[in-house]
Amino acid sequence: MRRPANAPTRRRRGPWVRLALLLMLLLYGVPLLWILITSLKSNVEIFANQASVIFKPTLHAYQQIAASGSLGTAMVNSLIIAGGTTLLTTFLGVLTAYGLARYRSQLIWWILGFLILLQMVPQTAEIIPLYHIFAVTGLVNTRLSVVLADSALLLPFAILILRPFFRNIPIEIEEAAAIDGASRLRTFLSVVTPLALNGIVTEAALVFIIAWGEFLYAISLLSNPGDYPVSAVLSQEIGAYNVSWPGLMALAAVGSLPILIVFLMAQRRLASGLSLGAVK
């Protein structure tokens, strides 16, 4: 399955390609670096010269967010929301995607069309109705409501990502298990799921990443900023003009650490598997 990096061509890169790569390195490396550099500056330095590269680094911004303690709360909220969304979405997504992969009928195109339509609806359009549903059920202002809303947002995406992985599993393998007398559910759990594990991990990583960054449902469904996840805190801080940029960037850097961890764990799968799922 793993291809060596140089598989497609063994051509040596020309000057244009090298130039393109360097440009991409700058375009994607500098903003990332800039987050770190800014977080190590003092407010005085920012005021004097925002664009400086040589300056006296300070951990002041990090010490401040550590002392305020609000980051810890926000991280826990993010973990609950992104973790809960990943679990719920993956559970429902795996079942549905398997069903859709094995179901042969014209109806399937209608269902897929429905999923894609949902996937395409602007998030802003769903806030008020969702708020009402959660208000009626008494879930509004709870992190659970954000988990449910995020799952509704991401489930179509998860199903579309997962379905090709199940389609790629030859049905004969299941049929062999069926001849041995296993039930459909058991076959699914013991034979199909392990084979699709690659796809499930990819899907779970993507859902976690997107749920970690989601903030619109969070600021709309939660009244108490004590329940806000990191993304919602950041969205309010950046919008608020009286920003301390070093503090904000320190918050962004620390708040993105879990994404780095997920990225490091899933990088290879993301780079090779995502596209397969997303496209077919």
């Binding site: 960037m249 962004a252 994404i259």
Partner: peptide, 23 residues
């Protein structure tokens, strides 16, 4: 470059929007 791009893509949009606003 590939790793960097995938990581940027995974970063929360608020963070990316925030750093660009600053830049």
């Amino acid at each position: 470059v590939l790793g960097l791009m995938v990581f940027i893509w995974a970063m929360p949009p608020v963070v990316l929007g925030g750093i660009w606003k600053f830049i």
